[in-house]
Nucleic acid binder design. Structure first.
Lengths: 210, 210
DNA sequence: TACTACCTTAGTACCAGGTTCTAAGAGAAA
DNA sequence: TTTCTCTTAGAACCTGGTACTAAGGTAGTA
């Protein structure tokens, strides 16, 4: 044990401890190089590399690549997220259907139950989308969460336009969300609509909606 | 101009065109190497590198690093996002305040008005957070969007626990959201709570909540 | 026609941050 | 003493570049 004179075990830590420390350091800062790690852990660069191998930690560049790819995927899926849920059927001013699968990022980590606002967001997005109007905004809503929705469940929301209130600027939309044939959510939305209200801005109500 | 025999200007494009193409290709796939680009653009690797220099496009590794750093920041801010909005005051089972700033990603691109479900999400998160319970889930809600919220506006949500319904498993929470001193949203939430319901699982109601 | 400017290509040296492999020493256990 | 694990060292090699020098083609112009 460290045959030197008075110095007994100064900062000599076990392999296991070093591995824990290594995981922690890389966890906190994934952009650290092996050379920087030698300074923090006081071992040679070869040891660092053996450690990474044992722990299955890829090299810095690979770590960055994975993060970059991950973020690229995320950005792409977020930009698709104009609407929460995928609209699979849409009859403007009549009805619409959207599908939304509950993933990790939508649930409480404690119990894997979906956060209410994601279920709401799907219904809200669909209620807005189904209104054939340039500007459609939620005015109010009356909602019920009928049963908990869990990780990996697929929510199918169906929206029906119930009343156009004589073009008076508001539409009522009813949304039912199902998992399988169980209803998990029900909401009555009142949606503001812009067109044909007071000033007819002419011809925009057929603008491209997808 | 291409002194060879019959072949006139076959896929000989101008520098400008090549630059446009280069930008497009890297835009579509930031993970492309210079070597791969030589195959797509039919020029030498030196030309590719001169082009990148002129256009100020960094090398592959630098591009990946930037994306990774960007996503790292995002992930960190997202993981704070257990709750939509930042909770600045919390008196469990009594009241809470959260702040949420409307950014680009929260608005309709057309008119920069916040999507309703973000405003709802802030209120819903706060309503759930204010309940001092292991498991708290939204059962139903009655909400009003009182005025549109625009890009860069700061929403301040205040939640008040109105009734504990005699520990019967439900709590009523009222949430008011303001921009400045204007009320923009109001919601009445009914929140399921787990503890002290039918089976007393003992001592968990003081579990760490932050 | 020659001169000049620009574009393109080739090649070399060098770099960071590694992998892979061989080898050897130190300390502890059998 | 031998054996084993842990640690360190060093060399060869890899990818995806940068930085720099040099040379050839092409085009326009005097």
């Amino acid at each position: 044990m460290n045959t030197r004179e008075g110095v007994p075990l100064i900062d000599r830590i076990s392999k296991k401890e070093r591995h824990q420390l290594l995981l922690k350091i890389i966890g906190q800062n994934p952009f650290v190089t092996d050379r920087e790690l030698t300074r923090e852990l006081k071992v040679s660069i070869q040891t660092i590399r053996l450690d990474r191998m044992e722990l299955g930690i890829p090299e810095l560049r690979e770590r960055m690549k994975q993060m970059a790819e991950h973020s690229y995927d995320q950005v792409r899926s977020l930009s698709l997220d104009e609407v929460v849920g995928e609209i699979v059927d849409l009859q403007l001013d009549k009805s619409g259907i959207s599908i939304f699968e509950i993933r990790e990022e939508h649930v409480f980590t404690r119990n894997s139950i979906a956060r209410g606002h994601y279920v709401f967001a799907q219904a809200n997005s669909l209620a807005v989308a189904v209104i054939n109007d340039e500007i459609a905004l939620t005015a109010s809503a009356d909602i019920r969460f009928l049963r908990q929705v869990h990780l990996n469940e697929k929510c199918i929301a169906k929206a029906y336009v119930r009343s156009m209130a004589g073009q008076k600027g508001k539409a009522k939309v009813e949304v039912f969300t199902y998992v399988g044939d169980e209803m998990v959510f029900q909401g009555n939305f009142v949606i503001y609509r812009s067109t044909l209200e007071d000033n007819s801005e002419g011809g925009v109500q057929d603008a491209d909606r997808h």
